[in-house]
Design a protein around this nucleic acid. Sequence first.
DNA 1: ATTAATTTTTAGACAAATCTAAAAAAAAGA
DNA 2: TCTTTTTTTTAGATTTGTCTAAAAATTAAT
Lengths: 219, 219
Amino acid sequence: MNFSIAEENYIKNIYHLQQQSELVNTNSLAYELQTKPASVTDMLKKLQIKNLLDYEKYKGFRLSSKGNKVAINIVRRHRLWEFFLVTKLGFEWDKVHAIAEELEHVSNQELIQKLDRFLNHPQTDPHGDPIPDGNGKMPVIHQLSMADVVEKKKVIVSSVGNQSPAILELLNHYHINIGTEIKINQRFSFDGSIEIKVGKYAACIISELVAKNIFVYHE
Amino acid sequence: MNFSIAEENYIKNIYHLQQQSELVNTNSLAYELQTKPASVTDMLKKLQIKNLLDYEKYKGFRLSSKGNKVAINIVRRHRLWEFFLVTKLGFEWDKVHAIAEELEHVSNQELIQKLDRFLNHPQTDPHGDPIPDGNGKMPVIHQLSMADVVEKKKVIVSSVGNQSPAILELLNHYHINIGTEIKINQRFSFDGSIEIKVGKYAACIISELVAKNIFVYHE
DNA sequence: ATTAATTTTTAGACAAATCTAAAAAAAAGA
DNA sequence: TCTTTTTTTTAGATTTGTCTAAAAATTAAT
Protein backbone atom coordinates (compact mmCIF):
# COMPACT_ATOMS: atom_id res chain seq x y z
CA MET A 1 0.00 0.00 0.00
CA ASN A 2 1.11 3.52 -0.80
CA PHE A 3 0.80 6.64 1.31
CA SER A 4 0.93 10.35 0.58
CA ILE A 5 3.86 12.43 1.76
CA ALA A 6 1.62 14.11 4.35
CA GLU A 7 0.46 10.74 5.68
CA GLU A 8 4.01 9.46 5.87
CA ASN A 9 5.11 12.52 7.80
CA TYR A 10 2.33 12.04 10.32
CA ILE A 11 3.13 8.36 10.72
CA LYS A 12 6.84 8.98 11.16
CA ASN A 13 6.33 11.69 13.75
CA ILE A 14 3.84 9.64 15.74
CA TYR A 15 6.42 6.87 15.73
CA HIS A 16 9.12 9.16 17.11
CA LEU A 17 6.84 10.60 19.81
CA GLN A 18 5.95 7.06 20.86
CA GLN A 19 9.60 6.37 21.66
CA GLN A 20 9.16 8.78 24.57
CA SER A 21 5.63 8.04 25.73
CA GLU A 22 3.30 5.19 24.88
CA LEU A 23 0.33 7.41 24.04
CA VAL A 24 0.64 10.47 21.84
CA ASN A 25 -1.53 13.55 22.10
CA THR A 26 -2.81 15.97 19.49
CA ASN A 27 -0.99 19.09 20.61
CA SER A 28 2.47 17.57 20.77
CA LEU A 29 2.08 16.03 17.33
CA ALA A 30 0.86 19.37 15.98
CA TYR A 31 3.92 21.03 17.48
CA GLU A 32 6.22 18.37 16.01
CA LEU A 33 4.72 18.78 12.56
CA GLN A 34 4.62 22.57 12.76
CA THR A 35 0.90 22.53 12.11
CA LYS A 36 -2.38 23.17 13.91
CA PRO A 37 -4.17 20.74 16.25
CA ALA A 38 -7.28 20.87 14.05
CA SER A 39 -5.27 19.62 11.09
CA VAL A 40 -3.93 16.79 13.20
CA THR A 41 -7.40 15.68 14.21
CA ASP A 42 -8.42 15.60 10.56
CA MET A 43 -5.48 13.44 9.59
CA LEU A 44 -5.90 11.12 12.58
CA LYS A 45 -9.34 10.19 11.31
CA LYS A 46 -7.94 9.33 7.90
CA LEU A 47 -5.14 7.22 9.38
CA GLN A 48 -7.59 5.41 11.59
CA ILE A 49 -9.78 4.52 8.61
CA LYS A 50 -6.68 3.05 6.97
CA ASN A 51 -6.04 0.98 10.10
CA LEU A 52 -2.73 2.65 10.82
CA LEU A 53 -3.81 4.07 14.15
CA ASP A 54 -5.50 3.11 17.39
CA TYR A 55 -7.43 6.23 18.15
CA GLU A 56 -10.27 7.21 20.44
CA LYS A 57 -11.63 10.74 20.51
CA TYR A 58 -10.11 12.82 23.30
CA LYS A 59 -8.17 9.79 24.53
CA GLY A 60 -4.86 10.04 22.69
CA PHE A 61 -3.59 7.62 20.05
CA ARG A 62 -0.86 5.18 19.08
CA LEU A 63 0.22 3.44 15.90
CA SER A 64 -1.41 0.10 15.15
CA SER A 65 0.90 -2.79 14.33
CA LYS A 66 0.31 -2.02 10.66
CA GLY A 67 1.12 1.64 11.27
CA ASN A 68 4.24 0.64 13.12
CA LYS A 69 5.49 -1.39 10.18
CA VAL A 70 4.94 1.53 7.84
CA ALA A 71 6.74 3.87 10.24
CA ILE A 72 9.75 1.62 10.58
CA ASN A 73 10.00 1.43 6.83
CA ILE A 74 10.07 5.21 6.58
CA VAL A 75 12.69 5.39 9.32
CA ARG A 76 14.73 2.80 7.42
CA ARG A 77 14.65 4.85 4.24
CA HIS A 78 15.48 8.05 6.08
CA ARG A 79 18.51 6.61 7.85
CA LEU A 80 19.85 4.80 4.79
CA TRP A 81 19.73 8.06 2.83
CA GLU A 82 21.43 9.91 5.68
CA PHE A 83 24.18 7.33 5.67
CA PHE A 84 24.51 7.68 1.92
CA LEU A 85 24.67 11.47 2.04
CA VAL A 86 27.44 11.46 4.62
CA THR A 87 29.59 8.52 3.56
CA LYS A 88 29.21 8.76 -0.22
CA LEU A 89 28.44 12.39 -1.00
CA GLY A 90 30.54 13.87 1.76
CA PHE A 91 27.86 15.89 3.56
CA GLU A 92 28.43 16.77 7.18
CA TRP A 93 26.16 14.84 9.50
CA ASP A 94 24.27 17.92 10.69
CA LYS A 95 23.26 18.91 7.14
CA VAL A 96 21.62 15.72 5.98
CA HIS A 97 18.38 15.55 7.93
CA ALA A 98 16.37 17.93 5.75
CA ILE A 99 17.46 16.26 2.52
CA ALA A 100 16.76 12.79 3.85
CA GLU A 101 13.28 14.00 4.80
CA GLU A 102 12.61 14.43 1.11
CA LEU A 103 14.38 11.33 -0.14
CA GLU A 104 12.60 9.09 2.37
CA HIS A 105 9.32 9.52 0.51
CA VAL A 106 10.63 7.87 -2.64
CA SER A 107 9.15 4.52 -1.79
CA ASN A 108 10.43 1.97 -4.25
CA GLN A 109 11.20 -1.33 -2.53
CA GLU A 110 13.92 -2.33 -4.95
CA LEU A 111 15.59 1.07 -4.68
CA ILE A 112 15.94 0.79 -0.92
CA GLN A 113 17.06 -2.80 -1.07
CA LYS A 114 19.76 -1.96 -3.61
CA LEU A 115 20.79 1.19 -1.74
CA ASP A 116 21.18 -0.91 1.40
CA ARG A 117 23.40 -3.36 -0.43
CA PHE A 118 25.42 -0.57 -2.04
CA LEU A 119 26.07 0.89 1.40
CA ASN A 120 27.02 -2.53 2.77
CA HIS A 121 24.04 -2.91 5.09
CA PRO A 122 24.98 -0.21 7.58
CA GLN A 123 23.82 -0.74 11.18
CA THR A 124 23.54 2.90 12.22
CA ASP A 125 23.04 6.26 10.57
CA PRO A 126 25.53 9.12 10.96
CA HIS A 127 23.86 10.14 14.23
CA GLY A 128 24.41 6.67 15.69
CA ASP A 129 20.74 5.68 15.40
CA PRO A 130 20.03 2.09 14.36
CA ILE A 131 18.83 1.33 10.83
CA PRO A 132 16.05 -1.30 10.75
CA ASP A 133 16.59 -4.12 8.25
CA GLY A 134 14.24 -5.04 5.39
CA ASN A 135 12.02 -6.98 7.80
CA GLY A 136 11.70 -4.07 10.18
CA LYS A 137 14.07 -5.54 12.72
CA MET A 138 16.21 -3.01 14.59
CA PRO A 139 19.81 -4.10 15.04
CA VAL A 140 21.00 -4.10 18.64
CA ILE A 141 23.41 -1.21 18.80
CA HIS A 142 26.07 -1.22 21.46
CA GLN A 143 27.42 2.03 20.09
CA LEU A 144 25.98 5.17 21.64
CA SER A 145 26.74 8.86 21.65
CA MET A 146 29.12 9.95 24.38
CA ALA A 147 26.53 12.54 25.38
CA ASP A 148 24.39 9.61 26.56
CA VAL A 149 27.00 7.69 28.55
CA VAL A 150 26.58 7.58 32.35
CA GLU A 151 29.29 9.06 34.53
CA LYS A 152 32.26 7.10 35.79
CA LYS A 153 32.08 4.64 32.91
CA LYS A 154 34.97 3.65 30.68
CA VAL A 155 34.19 3.55 26.98
CA ILE A 156 35.99 2.97 23.70
CA VAL A 157 35.54 5.27 20.69
CA SER A 158 33.95 3.42 17.77
CA SER A 159 33.14 6.18 15.29
CA VAL A 160 32.78 9.90 14.79
CA GLY A 161 29.51 11.34 13.52
CA ASN A 162 31.12 14.31 11.81
CA GLN A 163 33.80 14.10 9.17
CA SER A 164 34.57 17.81 9.01
CA PRO A 165 38.20 18.89 9.33
CA ALA A 166 37.10 21.19 12.16
CA ILE A 167 36.08 18.40 14.52
CA LEU A 168 38.91 16.11 13.50
CA GLU A 169 41.37 18.85 14.38
CA LEU A 170 39.73 19.15 17.78
CA LEU A 171 39.73 15.41 18.42
CA ASN A 172 43.39 15.28 17.53
CA HIS A 173 43.98 17.95 20.10
CA TYR A 174 42.23 15.81 22.71
CA HIS A 175 44.26 12.75 21.62
CA ILE A 176 41.02 10.98 20.67
CA ASN A 177 40.98 8.42 17.88
CA ILE A 178 38.96 5.37 16.88
CA GLY A 179 39.80 2.77 19.53
CA THR A 180 40.84 5.30 22.18
CA GLU A 181 39.70 4.46 25.71
CA ILE A 182 37.96 7.30 27.54
CA LYS A 183 36.80 7.57 31.13
CA ILE A 184 33.74 9.75 31.78
CA ASN A 185 34.40 11.71 34.96
CA GLN A 186 31.54 14.16 35.29
CA ARG A 187 28.73 15.82 33.32
CA PHE A 188 27.97 19.49 33.88
CA SER A 189 24.28 20.17 33.48
CA PHE A 190 24.75 23.87 32.82
CA ASP A 191 25.96 23.40 29.26
CA GLY A 192 26.05 19.64 28.90
CA SER A 193 29.83 19.61 28.81
CA ILE A 194 31.65 16.54 30.11
CA GLU A 195 34.94 16.06 31.89
CA ILE A 196 36.81 13.10 30.50
CA LYS A 197 40.14 11.43 30.95
CA VAL A 198 41.95 10.14 27.89
CA GLY A 199 44.73 7.63 28.55
CA LYS A 200 47.51 9.14 30.59
CA TYR A 201 46.72 12.74 29.64
CA ALA A 202 45.30 15.23 32.11
CA ALA A 203 41.52 15.27 32.44
CA CYS A 204 39.82 17.77 30.14
CA ILE A 205 36.36 19.05 29.29
CA ILE A 206 34.60 18.56 25.99
CA SER A 207 31.51 20.47 24.88
CA GLU A 208 28.13 18.80 24.48
CA LEU A 209 28.40 19.23 20.70
CA VAL A 210 31.65 17.32 20.62
CA ALA A 211 30.26 14.62 22.94
CA LYS A 212 27.26 14.13 20.65
CA ASN A 213 29.60 13.51 17.75
CA ILE A 214 31.69 10.86 19.43
CA PHE A 215 30.21 7.37 19.33
CA VAL A 216 31.48 4.82 21.80
CA TYR A 217 30.80 1.38 23.23
CA HIS A 218 31.21 0.07 26.74
CA GLU A 219 33.98 -2.12 28.20
CA MET B 1 12.43 29.70 -6.50
CA ASN B 2 10.68 26.47 -5.67
CA PHE B 3 8.02 24.63 -7.62
CA SER B 4 5.50 21.96 -6.77
CA ILE B 5 5.90 18.45 -8.12
CA ALA B 6 2.96 19.01 -10.44
CA GLU B 7 4.47 22.22 -11.80
CA GLU B 8 7.82 20.54 -12.34
CA ASN B 9 6.20 17.70 -14.24
CA TYR B 10 4.42 20.12 -16.53
CA ILE B 11 7.61 22.10 -17.13
CA LYS B 12 9.64 19.00 -17.87
CA ASN B 13 7.12 17.59 -20.31
CA ILE B 14 6.72 20.89 -22.14
CA TYR B 15 10.50 20.93 -22.47
CA HIS B 16 10.57 17.45 -23.98
CA LEU B 17 7.75 18.20 -26.41
CA GLN B 18 9.60 21.32 -27.52
CA GLN B 19 12.52 19.19 -28.67
CA GLN B 20 10.22 17.95 -31.41
CA SER B 21 8.25 21.05 -32.29
CA GLU B 22 8.77 24.68 -31.37
CA LEU B 23 5.19 25.28 -30.18
CA VAL B 24 3.41 22.84 -27.91
CA ASN B 25 -0.35 22.32 -27.88
CA THR B 26 -2.73 21.47 -25.09
CA ASN B 27 -3.83 18.03 -26.26
CA SER B 28 -0.38 16.59 -26.75
CA LEU B 29 0.76 17.80 -23.36
CA ALA B 30 -2.38 16.33 -21.78
CA TYR B 31 -1.61 13.02 -23.47
CA GLU B 32 2.01 13.13 -22.33
CA LEU B 33 1.00 13.82 -18.73
CA GLN B 34 -1.82 11.29 -18.78
CA THR B 35 -4.28 13.97 -17.80
CA LYS B 36 -7.17 15.96 -19.31
CA PRO B 37 -6.85 19.03 -21.55
CA ALA B 38 -8.89 21.08 -19.08
CA SER B 39 -6.35 20.38 -16.36
CA VAL B 40 -3.56 21.45 -18.69
CA THR B 41 -5.23 24.78 -19.42
CA ASP B 42 -5.56 25.42 -15.69
CA MET B 43 -1.89 24.78 -15.07
CA LEU B 44 -0.78 26.79 -18.10
CA LYS B 45 -2.36 29.86 -16.57
CA LYS B 46 -0.47 29.33 -13.34
CA LEU B 47 2.84 28.80 -15.12
CA GLN B 48 2.28 31.93 -17.17
CA ILE B 49 1.67 33.99 -14.05
CA LYS B 50 5.00 32.72 -12.74
CA ASN B 51 6.67 33.79 -16.00
CA LEU B 52 7.68 30.29 -16.93
CA LEU B 53 5.63 30.19 -20.08
CA ASP B 54 4.89 32.21 -23.22
CA TYR B 55 1.23 31.49 -23.69
CA GLU B 56 -1.64 32.98 -25.65
CA LYS B 57 -5.11 31.50 -25.47
CA TYR B 58 -5.82 29.10 -28.32
CA LYS B 59 -2.39 29.83 -29.82
CA GLY B 60 -0.13 27.19 -28.30
CA PHE B 61 2.71 27.81 -25.87
CA ARG B 62 6.43 27.48 -25.23
CA LEU B 63 8.70 27.80 -22.22
CA SER B 64 10.06 31.25 -21.46
CA SER B 65 13.81 31.52 -20.95
CA LYS B 66 13.18 31.29 -17.22
CA GLY B 67 11.01 28.20 -17.76
CA ASN B 68 13.73 26.70 -19.90
CA LYS B 69 16.31 27.10 -17.16
CA VAL B 70 14.02 25.40 -14.68
CA ALA B 71 13.35 22.56 -17.14
CA ILE B 72 17.03 21.94 -17.81
CA ASN B 73 17.65 21.78 -14.10
CA ILE B 74 14.99 19.10 -13.73
CA VAL B 75 16.43 17.17 -16.66
CA ARG B 76 19.86 17.42 -15.06
CA ARG B 77 18.59 15.97 -11.80
CA HIS B 78 16.70 13.23 -13.57
CA ARG B 79 19.66 12.09 -15.65
CA LEU B 80 22.14 12.25 -12.79
CA TRP B 81 19.89 10.02 -10.71
CA GLU B 82 19.46 7.62 -13.62
CA PHE B 83 23.21 7.40 -13.94
CA PHE B 84 23.51 6.77 -10.21
CA LEU B 85 20.85 4.06 -10.23
CA VAL B 86 22.53 2.15 -13.03
CA THR B 87 26.22 2.58 -12.26
CA LYS B 88 26.11 2.55 -8.46
CA LEU B 89 23.03 0.58 -7.47
CA GLY B 90 23.16 -1.89 -10.36
CA PHE B 91 19.71 -1.25 -11.83
CA GLU B 92 19.14 -2.15 -15.45
CA TRP B 93 18.78 0.92 -17.63
CA ASP B 94 15.16 0.21 -18.55
CA LYS B 95 14.06 0.13 -14.90
CA VAL B 96 15.35 3.48 -13.70
CA HIS B 97 13.08 6.00 -15.38
CA ALA B 98 10.18 5.76 -12.95
CA ILE B 99 12.41 6.00 -9.89
CA ALA B 100 14.33 8.94 -11.30
CA GLU B 101 10.98 10.67 -11.89
CA GLU B 102 10.54 10.72 -8.14
CA LEU B 103 14.10 11.53 -7.17
CA GLU B 104 14.28 14.44 -9.60
CA HIS B 105 11.87 16.45 -7.44
CA VAL B 106 14.24 16.52 -4.48
CA SER B 107 15.59 19.92 -5.33
CA ASN B 108 18.52 20.69 -3.10
CA GLN B 109 21.29 22.45 -5.00
CA GLU B 110 24.08 21.08 -2.85
CA LEU B 111 22.74 17.55 -3.13
CA ILE B 112 22.86 17.62 -6.91
CA GLN B 113 26.25 19.28 -7.00
CA LYS B 114 27.70 16.65 -4.66
CA LEU B 115 25.97 13.81 -6.49
CA ASP B 116 27.47 15.08 -9.73
CA ARG B 117 30.94 15.10 -8.20
CA PHE B 118 30.44 11.65 -6.66
CA LEU B 119 29.53 10.29 -10.09
CA ASN B 120 32.54 12.03 -11.66
CA HIS B 121 30.57 14.52 -13.74
CA PRO B 122 29.04 12.06 -16.19
CA GLN B 123 28.32 13.41 -19.68
CA THR B 124 25.41 11.14 -20.57
CA ASP B 125 22.77 9.15 -18.76
CA PRO B 126 22.40 5.38 -19.25
CA HIS B 127 20.24 5.99 -22.32
CA GLY B 128 22.99 8.03 -23.93
CA ASP B 129 21.21 11.36 -23.39
CA PRO B 130 23.41 14.32 -22.43
CA ILE B 131 23.44 15.58 -18.84
CA PRO B 132 23.46 19.40 -18.62
CA ASP B 133 26.05 20.87 -16.27
CA GLY B 134 25.37 23.10 -13.28
CA ASN B 135 25.03 26.13 -15.54
CA GLY B 136 22.51 24.42 -17.78
CA LYS B 137 25.00 23.82 -20.57
CA MET B 138 24.46 20.60 -22.51
CA PRO B 139 27.68 18.75 -23.31
CA VAL B 140 28.20 18.01 -26.98
CA ILE B 141 27.76 14.29 -27.22
CA HIS B 142 29.39 12.42 -30.03
CA GLN B 143 28.09 9.17 -28.64
CA LEU B 144 24.68 8.10 -29.89
CA SER B 145 22.51 5.01 -29.78
CA MET B 146 23.07 2.63 -32.69
CA ALA B 147 19.34 2.79 -33.31
CA ASP B 148 19.90 6.39 -34.42
CA VAL B 149 22.87 5.88 -36.72
CA VAL B 150 22.32 6.42 -40.46
CA GLU B 151 22.84 3.52 -42.82
CA LYS B 152 26.18 2.76 -44.46
CA LYS B 153 28.11 4.44 -41.66
CA LYS B 154 31.00 2.92 -39.79
CA VAL B 155 30.91 3.41 -36.02
CA ILE B 156 32.88 2.39 -32.95
CA VAL B 157 31.21 1.04 -29.82
CA SER B 158 31.73 3.36 -26.84
CA SER B 159 29.41 1.97 -24.19
CA VAL B 160 26.50 -0.33 -23.48
CA GLY B 161 23.37 1.00 -21.86
CA ASN B 162 22.46 -2.23 -20.17
CA GLN B 163 24.68 -4.14 -17.77
CA SER B 164 22.51 -7.25 -17.53
CA PRO B 165 24.16 -10.63 -18.13
CA ALA B 166 21.48 -11.30 -20.75
CA ILE B 167 22.59 -8.55 -23.10
CA LEU B 168 26.28 -9.08 -22.46
CA GLU B 169 25.87 -12.72 -23.45
CA LEU B 170 24.23 -11.60 -26.67
CA LEU B 171 26.90 -9.02 -27.48
CA ASN B 172 29.55 -11.63 -26.92
CA HIS B 173 27.75 -13.79 -29.41
CA TYR B 174 27.87 -10.95 -31.98
CA HIS B 175 31.57 -10.37 -31.20
CA ILE B 176 30.77 -6.86 -30.04
CA ASN B 177 32.86 -5.17 -27.37
CA ILE B 178 33.81 -1.66 -26.32
CA GLY B 179 36.01 -0.39 -29.17
CA THR B 180 34.63 -2.78 -31.78
CA GLU B 181 34.11 -1.25 -35.23
CA ILE B 182 30.68 -1.86 -36.75
CA LYS B 183 29.35 -1.06 -40.21
CA ILE B 184 25.63 -0.29 -40.45
CA ASN B 185 24.32 -1.98 -43.59
CA GLN B 186 20.56 -1.56 -43.53
CA ARG B 187 17.66 -0.71 -41.22
CA PHE B 188 14.41 -2.66 -41.55
CA SER B 189 11.46 -0.45 -40.79
CA PHE B 190 9.12 -3.35 -40.01
CA ASP B 191 10.65 -4.05 -36.59
CA GLY B 192 13.50 -1.55 -36.44
CA SER B 193 16.09 -4.29 -36.69
CA ILE B 194 19.43 -3.48 -38.29
CA GLU B 195 21.83 -5.48 -40.40
CA ILE B 196 25.39 -4.88 -39.30
CA LYS B 197 28.82 -6.14 -40.16
CA VAL B 198 31.28 -6.69 -37.34
CA GLY B 199 34.92 -6.96 -38.40
CA LYS B 200 35.51 -9.96 -40.61
CA TYR B 201 32.46 -11.88 -39.42
CA ALA B 202 29.45 -12.48 -41.65
CA ALA B 203 26.80 -9.73 -41.62
CA CYS B 204 24.07 -10.28 -39.04
CA ILE B 205 20.87 -8.67 -37.82
CA ILE B 206 20.37 -7.17 -34.38
CA SER B 207 16.99 -6.27 -32.93
CA GLU B 208 15.95 -2.68 -32.27
CA LEU B 209 16.17 -3.31 -28.52
CA VAL B 210 19.79 -4.37 -28.83
CA ALA B 211 20.59 -1.43 -31.13
CA LYS B 212 19.13 0.99 -28.60
CA ASN B 213 21.46 -0.39 -25.97
CA ILE B 214 24.65 -0.04 -27.94
CA PHE B 215 26.17 3.44 -27.88
CA VAL B 216 28.67 4.36 -30.55
CA TYR B 217 30.55 7.24 -32.08
CA HIS B 218 31.45 7.97 -35.68
CA GLU B 219 34.77 7.56 -37.45
C1' DA C 1 -17.94 20.05 43.42
C1' DT C 2 -18.11 23.84 40.65
C1' DT C 3 -15.51 26.89 38.12
C1' DA C 4 -11.54 27.82 35.28
C1' DA C 5 -8.12 26.44 32.09
C1' DT C 6 -6.55 23.37 28.75
C1' DT C 7 -6.99 20.14 25.15
C1' DT C 8 -9.38 18.29 21.43
C1' DT C 9 -12.78 18.21 18.07
C1' DT C 10 -16.29 20.16 14.84
C1' DA C 11 -17.90 23.35 11.39
C1' DG C 12 -17.03 25.84 7.63
C1' DA C 13 -13.67 27.97 4.46
C1' DC C 14 -9.64 27.90 1.34
C1' DA C 15 -5.78 26.65 -2.03
C1' DA C 16 -3.86 23.28 -5.22
C1' DA C 17 -4.66 20.11 -8.65
C1' DT C 18 -7.69 17.54 -10.73
C1' DC C 19 -12.22 16.17 -13.16
C1' DT C 20 -16.77 16.34 -16.33
C1' DA C 21 -19.74 18.69 -19.24
C1' DA C 22 -20.62 22.44 -21.96
C1' DA C 23 -19.23 26.64 -24.49
C1' DA C 24 -16.05 29.12 -27.51
C1' DA C 25 -12.50 29.44 -30.89
C1' DA C 26 -9.83 27.64 -34.65
C1' DA C 27 -9.07 24.48 -38.38
C1' DA C 28 -10.77 21.49 -41.97
C1' DG C 29 -14.01 20.16 -45.56
C1' DA C 30 -17.58 20.60 -48.87
C1' DT D 1 -18.11 30.62 -47.61
C1' DC D 2 -20.58 28.17 -44.54
C1' DT D 3 -20.85 24.05 -42.07
C1' DT D 4 -18.62 20.36 -39.51
C1' DT D 5 -14.97 18.69 -36.77
C1' DT D 6 -11.34 19.31 -33.69
C1' DT D 7 -9.05 21.80 -30.21
C1' DT D 8 -9.08 24.64 -26.37
C1' DT D 9 -11.12 27.01 -22.72
C1' DT D 10 -14.65 28.01 -19.11
C1' DA D 11 -17.77 26.80 -15.38
C1' DG D 12 -18.57 24.30 -11.65
C1' DA D 13 -17.58 20.17 -8.76
C1' DT D 14 -14.26 17.07 -6.14
C1' DT D 15 -10.25 15.56 -3.28
C1' DT D 16 -6.43 16.37 -0.20
C1' DG D 17 -4.52 18.86 3.23
C1' DT D 18 -4.68 22.85 5.48
C1' DC D 19 -6.65 26.86 8.24
C1' DT D 20 -9.63 29.87 11.84
C1' DA D 21 -13.09 30.29 15.08
C1' DA D 22 -16.15 28.24 18.01
C1' DA D 23 -17.97 24.27 20.56
C1' DA D 24 -17.31 20.16 23.39
C1' DA D 25 -14.76 17.24 26.42
C1' DT D 26 -11.23 16.65 29.74
C1' DT D 27 -8.23 18.11 33.36
C1' DA D 28 -6.81 21.25 37.01
C1' DA D 29 -7.78 24.40 40.69
C1' DT D 30 -10.02 26.67 44.21
